[in-house]
């Protein structure tokens, strides 16, 4: 059972990258469809809709970042990979915020991005405002990223 610590820790890292990545992939895909629709009718709006399409992609990067830090902390990228079960579970829990919030916020942001792409299609001069709506969703992904990163660094210092 002692060996299970590293398993849980790795599972947390993988989930962080996996769920946030899947959320971002779906989100960017959805926004990309909407962006392609606008560009079909008006290729001149490519630059504006591309920016909006990319917004739901950040959660995938956050997931990758959390996974990378976790892998370094638990010694999989080098050093000793010996960690207790309790510590492994803590790492697992620490990765959950970005895994779950990352997935959900990417999809929510995608919907907002699609709506904003529609706004830009009709009123391109409102691009600045259109950017703000999906960007607001980013706040929650950043909060989850902070909690995950602070927890992962904090767990390293705990001696259990």
């Amino acid at each position: 059972m002692d060996k299970m610590g590293i398993v849980f820790a790795l599972l947390g890292a993988v989930l962080g990258a996996l769920m946030a990545g899947v959320g971002s992939a779906r989100g960017v895909g959805l926004a990309g469809e909407a962006a392609a629709g606008v560009v079909t009718e008006d290729p001149g709006k490519f630059g504006k809709v591309l920016v909006l399409q990319l917004l739901p992609g950040t959660q995938g990067i956050y997931g990758l970042l959390v996974a990378f830090i976790t892998l370094s902390q638990i010694g999989i990228l080098g050093g000793s990979a010996e960690i207790s079960l309790a510590k492994g579970l803590l790492y697992f829990l620490a990765c959950l915020p970005i895994a779950i919030v990352g997935y959900g916020s990417a999809l929510g942001q995608a919907r907002a991005a699609v709506a904003s792409i529609g706004l830009v299609a009709k009123q391109p001069e409102q691009f600045g405002k259109a950017m703000i709506f999906p960007a607001m969703v980013e706040t929650y992904a950043i909060l989850a990223l902070l909690v995950s990163i602070l927890s992962i660094f904090g767990i390293g210092a705990i001696n259990i």
Binding site: L30, A34, A35, A36, G37, T40, E41, D42, V114
Partner: peptide
């Protein structure tokens, strides 16, 4: 509903005319 994203975006551009 998600699969109408492309169609709705094109319609949004069409609505201008």
């Amino acid at each position: 509903d998600m699969q109408y994203a492309y169609a709705v975006a094109r319609i949004r551009a069409k609505e201008l005319s």
